[in-house]
Design a binder for these strands. Sequence first.
RNA 1: GGAGAGAUGGCAGAGCGGUCUAAUGCGGCGGUCUUGAAAACCGUUGACCCAAAAGGUCCGGGGGUUCGAAUCCCUCUCUCUCCGCCA
Length: 423
Amino acid sequence: MLQLQVIRQNPELAREKLALKQFAEPQLVDLVITLDDERKKLQLEADTIQSKINAASKEIGQLMAKGQKEEAEAKKKEVTAFKTALQPLADKLSETEKTLYDKLVLLPNLPSDQVPAGKTPADNVVLREGGAKPQLPASAVPHWDLIKKYDIIDFETGAKITGSGFALFKGKGAKLQRALIQYFLDFNTAAGYTEYHPPFMVNEASAFGTGQLPDKEGQMYYMPEDKFYMIPTSEVPVTNIYRDEILKEEDLPIRMTAYSPCFRREAGSFGKDVRGLNRVHQFEKVEIVQLVDPAKSYDALDEMVLHIERLLNSLELPYRVLRLCGGDMSFASAITYDFEVYSAAQEKWLEVSSVSNFETFQTNRMKIRFKDSEGKSKLLHSLNGSSLALPRIIACLLENNQSAEGIKLPEAIHKYFGSGLVN
RNA sequence: GGAGAGAUGGCAGAGCGGUCUAAUGCGGCGGUCUUGAAAACCGUUGACCCAAAAGGUCCGGGGGUUCGAAUCCCUCUCUCUCCGCCA
């Protein structure tokens, strides 16, 4: 949720920034400001009357104590008149507050100055590439063939158990996934992130806090009996750890990491281009989240980007870093870097990580604040990134490392898994 | 699933219709004393709305009774205890 004061300070800039994000209703900015003016006016009027009621009520108490019953009764009548006058004002005020809030919540975050213009993924800017694309033998095949050859992931049985897009990992496949999770968590904790294992379902307040509601409601699995949402990413429970809290400056930055399965309905996005592990309803991911002093959030963002780059380098996968254009960024983000790895057999780049600075957009919803050196409470900045999402990493590891002898895995995961898969 | 108890400021905890602008303790901050520290003593210390002053709101959430609610009533959520079931 945007901070009202930011919009009020410079409505023109807010409208420009929203346009960069391809937001269709920039006039909402003006509506929000009008509603806020209305709210202030009503608040003042209501407070003035309330003040009179409070004073009169106190007098009644004192008159009663002195036994001046008649005077007290007269005062009571006075208060009743005030209350009658207050009622419609109070109703109007709460109605205005609600409308204001409902509109404010519809505004996406403003993109930061570094965000390039553009509407579609084609407009994203490739910042750099790393690693080397492998030369595969002519016999090389995509991962959906390799998983059958080695009998490590079974989509047919997954579909039988649950439905399409649910993978059943088996034998070495199950172990490879577990090994990667373990490696990623170790890599993150070694860099100073505290490990968490959160609940995999969240309540409505948590889903709202990180911005999944109301924006992505249809993308989450929902349990109506208990009003729980299956998490689409551990970002949701982990960031909500500090919801409604005021942190001390010396506790910053907060750096957290968590593994979780991620559940996504992916409604409408299944076409013929999404095969095998490229897009599934349940996947494993290790996430990093930071809560930092606003003055330092862009340094933290750079640090997270480097951290993920180091991790990808250790996996010896060819990758590239993109800065997303305004039109391709998520609702809540102020700036996003995507990491893609090159899937050599599919000859495609696959997104494996997304690193974002949300600035105060999430923390404003969650009221995550800190006391600054002057003792004032200020909103923190929240950031997160995947490190990493498993399925596409597994797809690339299989495809890019296939050979006549089998699949040779990178050194970094030998101690977690072994050196590879043999024919 | 059954029965009961509870939810108050950073923490502990009193208050159970009208000086609650919430006692007290701990913690935090400032000071006195001290070469310095500790101890002791004194002072101070919640959040939110409002440009600010004035004013207002907040004692788990929501609703009600009343001139007046932390306090009474309804309801929801959560926590604890006991019983049952269970990985």
